[in-house]
Design a protein around this nucleic acid. Structure first.
Lengths: 194, 194
DNA sequence: CCATCGTACTTGAAGTTTCAATGATTCGGC
DNA sequence: GCCGAATCATTGAAACTTCAAGTACGATGG
């Protein structure tokens, strides 16, 4: 146990850069959503994932999987979202253990309002700063590391971004502010308003 | 505001891969430290940064900066670490507003015991999986993105890893299990033991 | 000198996440 | 049909973080 292979200088620099970047970026996303929409990122993620699901609905277990939350954490979070009128619960018709969480129209309006600012921040802090070559390298490295970490992840099932309107080629999604008959919501972005 | 530039397919895939990887990795680090040492990562980081500081001591403000914690968060955390006997507080001789946090011998022993496993996990999950070319690309991308996010960060002041014994070329550090007269500590890895 | 402002740090309350325990339902085998 | 095991979900308490004051000290300017 005493033969630890410590990190060399470059590895250490890279590692510290990753930790710093990862942290600063997630804080930046949190700040942006908090400031502009009064939403924590984890709540936005839940709403966004529901908005992309068929029928805007998923079982609690499915939802927990896509947002990578523990069942307990999801349950607590959905309690709050439900209290805000953004999510509803209903029984699963075939498996009465399961509960289906569905995005309400109000919840959909919240996502649609929040998405552009969120995407803008991602673009500003990440993609606008990378050359096409860097983007390719970055994707390559992430794919390598991700498959090592969790072979179940098909390099896709995760975050809250929105595809182009002109690209129906993308499989999962149904989020974009284009494909929903939104009648300007009640505009209550405060997450804790009872 | 309706002219949002959504992410294209590749950008979206890369972004979701990053979010997934970042999350899975930090959870993996948290699990490893929790399982093997009974320490949350944020506490380990505090101890590790103190262990690298001159005199194993920093003011609370300095410490908060290097671990990127709010003053409040740090104060609460140091309360716990102090209760465990791993950190001590003392007054700053020249500025009596300031408080100096110092790593005790017991705290040093905890870091020295935890470091190898932590480094091993970093190596196993990250560096052992990248080719030298990928490592260079990764470092390049991270440096680019990091300077964009926070120009104050000199690509270094962050995480808890340890340099090689054979490399006194590294500036900051003083952590490695080699350079401290460790007389096997009381071996109490449980973080909440009073 | 002393009033004022800014810095260093702490505290208690509120919010979020984790942990362990529990209820309800389905599935597999006998 | 029924029992045990596994799955789906919730709950309350504990742990951690954040937020809003609040205390103490140092620095600035009249």
């Amino acid at each position: 146990m005493t033969d630890t292979r410590w990190l060399d200088e470059e590895e250490q620099r890279t590692w510290r850069a990753f930790v710093a970047f990862s942290r600063l970026l997630s804080e930046a996303m949190e700040r942006q959503l908090g400031r502009d929409e009064g939403l924590p990122f984890s709540y936005y993620l839940i709403l966004a994932m529901l908005s992309e699901a068929p029928g805007r609905s998923l079982t609690m277990t499915e939802l927990a999987t896509v947002v990578r939350a523990s069942p307990s954490r999801l349950s607590h979070a959905v309690n709050k979202l439900q209290a805000n009128g953004w999510v509803e619960r209903s029984r699963h018709p075939e498996d009465r253990r399961a509960i289906i969480a569905s995005l309400t129209d109000e919840g959909m309006a919240v996502v649609e309002k929040a998405a552009p600012g969120h995407v803008g921040e991602v673009r500003r802090l990440v993609f606008d700063r990378l050359t096409p070559e860097q983007l390719v390298s970055f994707d390559d490295v992430l794919t390598t590391l991700l498959t090592g970490l969790d072979p179940d992840v098909p390099v896709c099932p995760d975050t809250p971004v929105c595809p182009t309107d002109a690209e129906p080629a993308v499989p999962t999604v149904g989020l974009c502010p284009s494909d929903a008959g939104l009648d300007d919501g009640p505009g209550a972005p405060d997450c804790d308003a009872a």
